[in-house]
Design a protein around this nucleic acid. Structure first.
Lengths: 116, 116
DNA sequence: CTGTTATATAACAAGTATGTTATTATTTTT
DNA sequence: AAAAATAATAACATACTTGTTATATAACAG
C-alpha cells in the first residue's frame, strides 16, 4: 500500500504531472525536461527522483545523459485502486436502488441512510 | 489544476484512502469512521477536512452528528487526468510503431524499447 | 590533461502535513 | 439544568517537502 502512497503523492505536484505528460509523448533527458520550467536543475532532479521512487518513470544512462521515460505499468496500480473504489461505489448504488424499489416509499433523502 | 493537486494529495494518505473505501459502501458519521483507526478523533476530523477540501466527500449535519459520504463525482477528475495521460501514451506508442515500421530498423537498437 | 556539459548530492530555509492533548460549541439525554 | 455525546478548533511538536545555492562526479571534447 506504500506504493500507492508514493504514487499518489508524486502525482500531487503539478510540476511532476507536467513532467509525466511530457514523457507520455516520448523519452527525454533531464535537461530537456528541466528546460520548460522556471526552476533550478537540482529541483528537477529531485522531482525525477520522486517520480522514479514512485515507480512512475524509469531512467537509462547513456554517457553523461539520463534518458527518462514513463514506466510501462505506471498507471496500472492507480487505476486499479480507483476502479476498486468505483466498483464498490456502484455496487452500493445498485444496492440502494434495489432497496428503494423494494420499499417504494417517499424519497426523503434524510431517511435513505444506507448503513450496513 | 490545483483541484488535482489536492485530490491526489488527499489520496496519498492510507488513512484517507481507507476512509474513502469505507464510505464507498455507504455514508457514516465521524465517530463511525474514526472507530477502526488507532488515532484520535481530532486527527480523523482533520483527514475528513482534507477529503472535503479535495472535493472527495461531502458532509451533512443531522443533530450533533455529521454524516459523511463520497462526493458523487469524486473520481471523475482523477480518472480524466489518468485517462488523458494514458491516451497520449498510447498515441505515442502508435506513433513509435509506425515510425519503426517505416524505418525498418535503421536505428540504434538501444532506442527501440517498446514494452507494454 | 583540461575545460565543459550533464546530472546528482549536500546543506539549508521556509512552508506544509500530521499527529497529539486540551478546549469549545452544540445537541441530546437524564 | 446538568451531564454526556459528537464533532470542531487551537496550540503545539515533529517530520516531510520543495525550493535554493554550492559542490561533486563522470563523461566528453579539445
Amino acid at each position: 500500500m506504500t506504493d500507492l502512497d508514493s504514487a499518489f503523492a508524486a502525482l500531487a505536484d503539478p510540476t511532476r504531472r507536467a513532467i509525466l505528460a511530457r514523457l507520455a509523448s516520448g523519452e527525454a533527458t533531464v535537461m530537456e525536461l528541466a528546460q520548460p520550467f522556471d526552476m533550478s536543475q537540482p529541483a528537477i532532479s529531485r522531482h525525477l527522483k520522486v517520480l522514479e521512487g514512485a515507480g512512475l518513470i524509469v531512467r537509462r544512462a547513456e554517457g553523461t545523459r539520463r534518458h527518462c521515460s514513463l514506466a510501462p505499468t505506471a498507471l496500472e496500480e492507480l487505476e486499479q485502486w480507483l476502479a476498486m473504489l468505483r466498483r464498490v461505489l456502484e455496487a452500493n448504488y445498485g444496492r440502494l436502488d434495489r432497496l428503494l424499489a423494494t420499499m417504494s416509499l417517499e424519497n426523503d433523502p434524510s431517511k435513505t441512510e444506507n448503513k450496513e
